[in-house]
Design a protein around this nucleic acid. Structure first.
Lengths: 337, 337
DNA sequence: TTGTACGCGTTATCAG
DNA sequence: CTGATAACGCGTACAA
């Protein structure tokens, strides 16, 4: 590679001191207009590009954030994460931040390994996506201030981490209300992975809302599994085997819903006539299948954006105490329910 | 943050010289077993983590690659890119490479801007995803050796860039043959974005194969658009307006196919009875919709992996001349055709 | 095998 | 406003 041109070269060609050249390039206001123009011209002529590695070392900062995606190296990455990632990249770019992506399979996430990226100056901050657990003790901020780590799609404020999440409960309340409004009185709940944050919260939201409506006796939890299509398909089998089939199915997420619909329809049931189906997430393609899926659309990309903004605020020292931002989903009523 | 511990600290605690400590950590074989253990112990005790920024500067390398995703900041990111990204992260991790992700909206891609990431030592190499154009002249390797840039999902060997692609032609040949084998004699082709690499190649493949079969007169190209669901839906309208509707529709990609199916079915047509539909890509959810989509499944993740391997080989000097790797898709025959 | 000394390219401090 | 100089922390010829 070329990359010979350094500040020293510019200093030589301009006859200025290397420090002046550096200043002219990074704090244009701190030098005379004349010097500035000169430096800029010579820099352009010589094709100066700088050396990020050197800058990082000298400044002690990288202007880079890392996003940690779970199960990325698995069967299929959730389209939801993709959306979040989109928002992350978008916002990061407009804030002048670079983004590094790192996948991890472990749940709970290896906290120490994550902190290492901060300590060894690989990145300035980290965005956790849908991370189940965070141990503030092993992270080393048991009683000290929180590190530049933000949790997205999972409320980790209890561990001292600022978080941005969707109001999942609201989403499921809307789903339940919609279904109840349609006259349904029996509800299957197609579960996600047992014990997992999202699964627990969503089921609780459904159960509580049904209880509030006096409909709790109509709730039939059905084992689902990982948040994917195949699990939904498998759940359909369990649903079909029921003696008394509920007239509505509330799925923990869209992928489960799609798989579920496929399963019941293959068995000859009609959606929504025999069983109404609703999901959660709002994946784009749910609007383009037949029947189009009724689902609570969460602002995934916006969640990513908000996470990056929060991280940036944190890095710039604009916020210091853990904060929680939660964004509202909206119900998209379509054909399936 | 803590991060005080440096090699100098270890040197002090062990009584060894800083360079010995450095060696013990990076070339364990070049020091005595005793020193090595001592250093490792002290390093562990003090919680030494190193400083990546310093290492990068000193070594002149970052052990990081950048993947450039197009249109990432747009409507919806293609699930195909997500798959590729998955493979990239997977392989990069096993090769000890970090990955940075950067989106760009411009087509053609701003070659100079990309080269800058290399010259300023932000990353060691770059993976271009589905990049339409690359100008070797502005990239600065008109007649010199190629830079550490690999193109994925788009053959750019003509511009001197090693590339890894899917055998799209084979995929569409398989689709055409399958449809013809089913007895179809008239074929709608739902196009992608006009002029774009994939669109051009795929249409040509369909047309050529149909011609080879003597069926070229049955080909009816229909305007589609961007590779998304909405474009497919819109294309369905044009298809429906045809005087003589073909009995089969070959779509430039799965998203177009899904949207198209949705459109024709809403109009009361049956798939595959009134019109058989086939796609290309093999998105996972195409198997879980009704009717399940017949499509050519390309090994997207593997393409990402191969791209990273190739880039790594390039960086390690194992390969130097531009190379082309192309992976075969396989036809998944399902319900839609 | 270990130590010395310098280079990597920038930024920042502190005079001038 | 500009210049000299000292970090930044690590890698590595070269010498011992």
């Amino acid at each position: 590679m070329a990359q010979r041109i350094t500040l020293a070269d510019l200093a030589e060609k301009t006859g200025l001191n290397i420090s002046t050249v550096s200043r002219a390039l990074t704090r244009p206001g701190r030098v005379s207009a004349e010097t500035r123009r000169l430096v800029e011209k010579v820099a352009a002529d010589l094709g100066y590009m700088g050396n990020i590695a050197a800058r990082n070392l000298s400044r002690g900062t990288t202007e880079t954030i890392m996003v940690l995606a779970p199960n990325f190296t698995g069967q299929a990455i959730s389209p939801v994460f993709t959306e979040v990632l989109l928002g992350v990249c978008d916002e990061a770019e407009s804030l002048g931040l670079s983004v590094m992506i790192h996948s991890h399979t472990g749940q709970p996430i290896p906290t120490a390994d994550v902190m290492r990226f901060l300590h060894n100056h690989t990145v300035d901050g980290i965005l956790l996506i849908a991370t189940e657990k965070w141990d503030r003790a092993v992270a080393g901020h048991k009683d000290g201030p929180a590190p530049p780590v933000i949790s997205v799609m999972h409320d980790l404020t209890s561990e001292g981490l600022s978080s941005v999440v969707a109001q999942e409960e609201e989403g499921f309340v809307a789903v339940v209300d919609h279904l109840a409004g349609l006259g349904h009185r029996s509800f299957a709940y197609i579960a996600g992975l047992p014990g997992v944050y999202h699964e627990v919260r969503r089921y609780a939201a459904v159960r509580d809302r049904l209880t509030a409506l006096g409909l709790q006796d109509g709730l039939v939890p059905i084992e689902g599994g990982p948040f994917d299509l195949a699990s939904g398909f498998a759940a359909a089998g369990r649903f079909l085997a029921l003696d008394q089939r509920p007239t509505a199915a509330i799925c923990c997420c869209d992928a489960l819903a799609i798989g579920f619909m496929q399963g019941v329809r293959q068995a000859g049931l009609s959606v929504p006539d025999d069983v109404a189906v609703a999901g959660y997430d709002g994946l784009d393609y749910t609007a383009f299948i037949t029947p189009a899926l009724t689902t609570a659309v969460q602002p995934s990309a916006e969640i990513g954006r908000a996470g990056v903004r929060m991280l940036d605020d944190f890095l710039k020292g604009r916020i210091t105490a853990p904060r929680l931002v939660s964004l509202a989903p909206r119900l998209a009523v379509r054909e399936s329910a």
